[in-house]
Structure formats: C-alpha cells, structure tokens
Deep mutational scan, measured.
Amino acid sequence: MQRVNMIMAESPGLITICLLGYLLSAECTVFLDHENANKILNRPKRYNSGKLEEFVQGNLERECMEEKCSFEEAREVFENTERTTEFWKQYVDGDQCESNPCLNGGSCKDDINSYECWCPFGFEGKNCELDVTCNIKNGRCEQFCKNSADNKVVCSCTEGYRLAENQKSCEPAVPFPCGRVSVSQTSKLTRAETVFPDVDYVNSTEAETILDNITQSTQSFNDFTRVVGGEDAKPGQFPWQVVLNGKVDAFCGGSIVNEKWIVTAAHCVETGVKITVVAGEHNIEETEHTEQKRNVIRIIPHHNYNAAINKYNHDIALLELDEPLVLNSYVTPICIADKEYTNIFLKFGSGYVSGWGRVFHKGRSALVLQYLRVPLVDRATCLRSTKFTIYNNMFCAGFHEGGRDSCQGDSGGPHVTEVEGTSFLTGIISWGEECAMKGKYGIYTKVSRYVNWIKEKTKLT
C-alpha cells in the first residue's frame, strides 16, 4: 500500500490518463441519441435557420407576430419608411378606419389613436360632414345658397324668414311668412316636400332668348283662358290664391305678392273693366268669414305684352289694390325667389296649380277651390304637342294621358313649387288646347323671366 501511494504521488498524470480511459469505455446513459432527441424537440425550422439574422431580410411573422416588435424591426421587413409607417399605425392600436367614419364618399386613412378623412370636392370637416359648395344638395341650405369668396357655403332665406341657429334652416321672422300653410287642420295635408338634388348652379339658368321682337298675326285659340281631375282644397291650404270678379264672377285667378299687390295673367284683364279681388276665398257660393274683398285701382301688364300681336306672350300683369290686405292664416303671400332659384325650383319637376275653373272641358265651374299636382314636361315634348308657338318664356306641365289639367277660369292662378315646406311661385296658368285632352298640356308663363320686374313694381313704400 505504501508503494502504491508513492507511485500516485510521483505520477499524477498517469492516474488522470487511467481515469479518462475508464470513462470513455463506459456506456453513456444520461444523453439520448440524435434521433430520439429530435422526437422530443420537434420544432419547425425557421426561415433563416442556421444563418445569422443580421444578414437576412426581415420576416413579418418572425419579427412582429411571434413577439412584439419595434418600429426598427418592422422597418427591416418593409425596407421602406412609408410602408412601415402605414403598417405601424394599425399594428400599434388597430384600424381606426374600420367603422368607416368618413361621410359623403370620403376616404379614410388610419393613424395612431386617430384617423384622417380625405374629402371629395365640396366637403370638409373631420368626417367630411361639412358642405362647402352650393353645387351639392344646395349646400344643405333649406332655401338659398351662395358661395363666399373663400368658396364656403353661405345660406340665406327669402323675405319674412331668418336663418336658424344651425345656419342652414329657415324659420319665420314674421307672423305670416310667405308660402307657408298655417291653418292647423290643413298642415297635415301639406304636399310632399321637395329635397334639393345635386345641381350645376353655374349652368342652372337656361341660355334662352326671349323672342321679344317676333311679330306674329293673332292666333285663334280655343278655350285658351284655361282644375280638371283635381281635388277639393281645404280652407287655408292655398292662402296665396285669390279669385278675380268682373263682368262675371271667378273669371280668373291670381296670387298675393304682398298686402297691396296681386300677380295674374295679362290676358285676364281689360282696361276700363272694374275688377274686384277676393282673398281668403274657399267656396265661392258661401260666406265663410275668411274672405277679404278689395278693388283694383291700377293694372300693370308687362311692358312687352301686346294682345294685338299675341294674347299669351309675356302673359303676366300686376294688380294694385285700393287697401292693403290683412295677412292671416287664410290670406298669405306666395314666396318669389330670384331668377336663378325660381328656375331651379321649376326644374324640380312638379308643381301645384289651383283655381275655381271648370271641372271638365266646357263644363261647370268649381264651387270649392280645386288643386292638382302636375309634372313638368320637357321642352321637346311640349313643342311636338301643339302647332302653336311655345315661346321661351312659357313652359308645359300636365299629363300625356289627359284627364287632369287646369281649365277655363283658372287662368292667372299660381303654379307653385314647394321647397322644404315653403311654396314659391314658378308659373302662372296661361293657356292650353281644350282641357285635359290626351297628348295636350297646360301652358304656363315662366315666372323666372319676370321676377325682377315683379319685385321692382310691387315694392311697398
């Protein structure tokens, strides 16, 4: 034993070699072989497995989906700052455009905790909710729209109204504003409101030439003092309507412009014939205590009207009353817009006519005020429907199939267009061939041609 100890002390290297040989010859039971080890760690190889990531292109799944990435790591994937920024906006807080917040056709661009709407022409605001041009839906104005110097929408209202708090709607500024039905039992019968379409306001006024200088022999019209197929109006439903009495009662109609003036057809009036105007009328054979009678003290036909040349060209006249009318729910003026808007309103496509005229061709006159909704007829169809001249200051309205029309005794009465609950004068009943005849239409004086003249002559002093 002493000898062994001496050998170990003198030859430590020998001992180490012996131990190493023993270990190498022993069977290893701690580690699995290569094949079995792979069965336990069965993990798919990654895209760049075996390579240094710093030297390969980034992978979106590896960089940002398996674990949260930084902007720089995302930049490695896209290799483009702009594309990385677009991805980053949604990656950080989701897609803010998912709810489609942009209105009126706006395009949404996502941002971090926010979004941006790219608005089409005519709109602005956070969600493109603000109209900035009158060309689109009248700028959301209830009545009139004008573009300011910086191309912003400025709404306005006709006389007797003021802008509401929203700067879009119009509200009454006087007790009985024009064009409004205020009798409670008839307010439910107000005709369907007309909503502004998209309009090209630059070209809204037709490029028409008034044929002022045409000389033409007097034409022989049949029954051209021209509501057939209409309905009984309720008291106060058309408070701007008046009836004219002269040699015979209810020979023509008219509309209240203001307390002192009536507008009617020029062919209705004769110099030297006494005319009485009755406002607030409903049943011409009954006294309903809503009527107001006034005498006409002055007749002003349009300066281009000449019955000797043509009885229905420039067929418009103004009547001055001896005493002002007292405005109330049964006696209310009709609204008159400017030339541009009167023309736009007419193009809405349908209007209402009213009167006490004959209820059928050569038949009896109506006792109760009649009204009828009539569609506008395109000019080409209008011209083809008659052998008589249709001037540019006239328009056609009615039904091709016949059966409904204005008729004798309705002449001078109103053709009105309702705009968001307020009625505007767009025409004056003038003439036609018979009444409600198939293929024939009622012919009306186009008020847009005469609004400046009306307003100039009827100013209240």
Rank of each mutant, 00 (worst) to 15 (best):
E281T: 15
C141P: 00
Y161S: 01
Y312P: 04
N38W: 06
R384H: 10
K247S: 13
T264Q: 01
N80M: 03
F238I: 07
R162G: 06
D150N: 13
H400L: 10
G439F: 04
T84M: 04
Q167G: 07
I336K: 00
K293A: 07
T209R: 10
F395D: 01
K339I: 07
A207E: 13
H314C: 03
T417D: 03
T417G: 01
G413W: 09
G13N: 14
E420L: 11
A233G: 08
V353R: 08
T194A: 13
T422S: 04
K188T: 07
E281S: 11
T290P: 05
L346C: 02
G363D: 09
Q370M: 05
R162W: 07
L60Q: 03
A366I: 08
V377C: 03
E86M: 10
D223F: 10
S329D: 15
Y47V: 05
K339E: 15
I297W: 04
L14I: 13
E72I: 06
I309S: 07
K446S: 09
S350Q: 13
Q57R: 00
T426P: 00
L189C: 07
K459R: 06
G122Q: 09
N222I: 08
G272Y: 07
S148W: 08
A192R: 05
T133K: 13
H289M: 15
G236Y: 05
G230F: 15
K39R: 13
I214S: 15
T426V: 01
P12F: 15
A307P: 12
E116F: 12
K146M: 14
G21K: 05
N295Y: 07
G355N: 08
Y47N: 05
V199W: 12
W356A: 04
S204H: 11
E456R: 08
Y391C: 06
E259I: 05
A250S: 12
A397L: 01
P239K: 01
V296D: 00
V269S: 04
C18M: 11
H289R: 07
I7N: 14
T215V: 08
L52Q: 15
P172G: 08
G413K: 06
A192F: 09
D95C: 05
M6G: 13
N452C: 05
Q237D: 06
F71T: 03
T29I: 14
E171S: 07
Y312H: 09
Y450E: 00
F176L: 06
F221E: 12
E320T: 01
A173H: 09
N127F: 11
P120V: 13
V269N: 01
N393E: 07
C18H: 06
P101Y: 04
W453Q: 01
I309M: 10
W240K: 01
T271C: 05
E53N: 00
Y91E: 05
Y444A: 03
A26H: 04
P101W: 04
E165D: 15
L14E: 02
K45W: 01
N343L: 04
K347Y: 07
K459I: 11
A26L: 07
Q241E: 04
E66D: 05
E98N: 13
T342A: 06
W261G: 00
L460A: 08
C97W: 02
V359C: 07
A308Q: 14
G125I: 02
D110I: 07
G351K: 02
F424Y: 08
V243D: 02
S220H: 08
G254L: 00
N59Q: 06
E82V: 06
A337H: 01
D93F: 08
C170N: 01
V359Y: 11
E281Y: 08
V228Y: 10
Y330D: 04
S406W: 14
L23I: 13
D131L: 13
N166W: 02
C128Q: 03
D405A: 08
L425N: 02
N59V: 03
V331E: 00
K457W: 07
H267Y: 03
A164Y: 04
D223W: 07
V228L: 08
E124F: 10
I316V: 08
L372V: 12
S406H: 13
I210N: 06
Y201T: 15
E433G: 11
E10M: 13
E98P: 04
T194G: 14
T458W: 00
Y22E: 04
K152E: 10
F238G: 02
V326L: 11
Q219H: 11
G58K: 00
L24Y: 11
D378A: 09
E281W: 12
A436C: 06
K274V: 07
I262T: 01
F176H: 10
V77H: 05
V153E: 05
N42C: 05
R46G: 02
A308H: 10
S354P: 05
F144A: 00
V30A: 09
T271N: 15
R384L: 09
S156M: 12
T445K: 01
Y201P: 10
E193H: 12
T276E: 13
S156R: 09
L24H: 05
M437E: 12
V77R: 02
L425W: 00
G122H: 08
C102N: 02
E61K: 05
V30L: 13
G351T: 03
I344V: 09
S11L: 12
G160E: 03
E142H: 08
P333C: 02
P44N: 13
G355C: 08
V278M: 07
D322Q: 06
L383Q: 15
M6S: 13
R62G: 02
L52C: 04
R358F: 07
G403L: 10
A380D: 14
C28F: 02
G106C: 03
T290L: 06
M65L: 10
P333S: 05
K311T: 06
C155R: 01
V416N: 04
P324D: 05
T225L: 11
T29V: 14
N138A: 07
Y305A: 02
V326H: 13
S354R: 08
T287W: 14
A436D: 11
A279M: 02
S204T: 10
E401Y: 09
W356T: 05
M8F: 13
V248E: 09
K45L: 02
E418Y: 10
G253V: 14
M437R: 08
K45Y: 01
K168R: 09
L318T: 01
K89L: 08
D33A: 12
T271E: 15
I443Q: 04
Y371I: 12
N393R: 03
K440H: 15
V273C: 06
C69V: 00
T29R: 09
I334W: 00
K459T: 15
C102H: 02
P44H: 08
P12D: 11
K457E: 09
E401S: 10
E67T: 02
M394P: 01
D93W: 07
G160P: 01
V56W: 00
V331I: 07
L60H: 03
F196C: 07
G351Q: 03
D198A: 12
G439V: 03
V331T: 06
E124W: 10
L19Q: 02
L244Q: 01
I334P: 01
Q90V: 12
F348Q: 09
N80Y: 03
Q167S: 14
T16I: 10
K247Q: 14
V447A: 08
G105K: 06
L41S: 04
E159W: 06
K137T: 14
S49N: 10
D33K: 10
G442R: 10
V377R: 05
H34Y: 15
G413A: 12
V359K: 15
